[in-house]
C-alpha cells in the first residue's frame, strides 16, 4: 500500500470523495425510516400493546370475579353441608327419642303385665294358703272333737273351736 493507493484502495472509509454521497443517502434513509416508524409502525404496535394490556386487565378482573363467585359457591356449599348435617343429626335424635318413647311404653306395658301376673299369682298363692289354713283348722277341730269323743270328754263345739284357734294362733 503506497501513498498513491491510500485514497483509492487503501481504506475506503477515509475516501473523502464518497462522504457526500453516503451522508446524503444516510439522511434520506433516516428521514424515511423515521416517518415510517413514527407514523405507521409505532402507533400500530402501541395500539396492539395497549389493547392487550386492556384485555389482560379486564380478564384478570373477570377472573377475580369468577374467583369470588367460586368462593361464594363454596361457602354456600359449606353452609348447606352444615345444615344437612344438623338436619341429619336432628332426624337421628328424633328417631332415637321416638324409639326411646316406644321402648318406654312397651317396657311400662310389660312391667304392668308382669305386675298384674305376679299379683294374680300371689293372690292365688294366698288363696291356696288360706284354704289350706282353713282346712288345717277344720281338720284340727274335727280331730280335737274326735279325740274328745274318744275320751268321753264333754265339750261343746264353741269352746273346741276357740281352743283350737287359740292354739293355732300361738303355734302359728
Amino acid at each position: 500500500m503506497d501513498e498513491t493507493a491510500a485514497s483509492g484502495s487503501g481504506m475506503p472509509q477515509l475516501d473523502i470523495t464518497t462522504f457526500s454521497n453516503q451522508i446524503f443517502w444516510l439522511i434520506v434513509t433516516l428521514v424515511v425510516l423515521y416517518y415510517v416508524m413514527s407514523r405507521v409502525a409505532l402507533p400500530r404496535v402501541a395500539a396492539v400493546l395497549a389493547d392487550r394490556r386492556g384485555t389482560i386487565t379486564s380478564d384478570i378482573a373477570a377472573a377475580e370475579e369468577f374467583k369470588l363467585k367460586a368462593q361464594e359457591a363454596e361457602d354456600a356449599y359449606k353452609t348447606a353441608m352444615v345444615d344437612a348435617r344438623a338436619e341429619a343429626n336432628r332426624i337421628v335424635e328424633a328417631a332415637k327419642a321416638e324409639m326411646q318413647a316406644e321402648l318406654d311404653v312397651q317396657l311400662a306395658k310389660a312391667d304392668a303385665e308382669i305386675a298384674a301376673k305376679s299379683a294374680e299369682s300371689e293372690r292365688r298363692i294366698r288363696e291356696i294358703r288360706d284354704s289350706a289354713l282353713a282346712m288345717v283348722t277344720e281338720v284340727s277341730q274335727d280331730i280335737t272333737a274326735d279325740v274328745l269323743g274318744v275320751f268321753d270328754a264333754k265339750a261343746d263345739q264353741g269352746s273346741v273351736t276357740a281352743a283350737v284357734s287359740a292354739r293355732m294362733k300361738g303355734g302359728a
Binding site: T18, N21, Q22, W25, L26, V28, T29, V32, L33, V36, M37, V40, A41, L42, R44, V45, V48
Partner: peptide, 22 residues
C-alpha cells in the same frame, strides 16, 4: 451507490419487521 441499496434494504427490513410482521 451500494450505500443507497443497502440503506434501502435496511429500511425495508425494519419496515418488514415492524409493519408486515406485526
Amino acid at each position: 451507490t451500494n450505500v443507497t441499496l443497502w440503506m434501502a434494504l435496511t429500511v425495508l427490513a425494519a419496515s418488514a419487521l415492524m409493519i408486515y410482521g406485526a
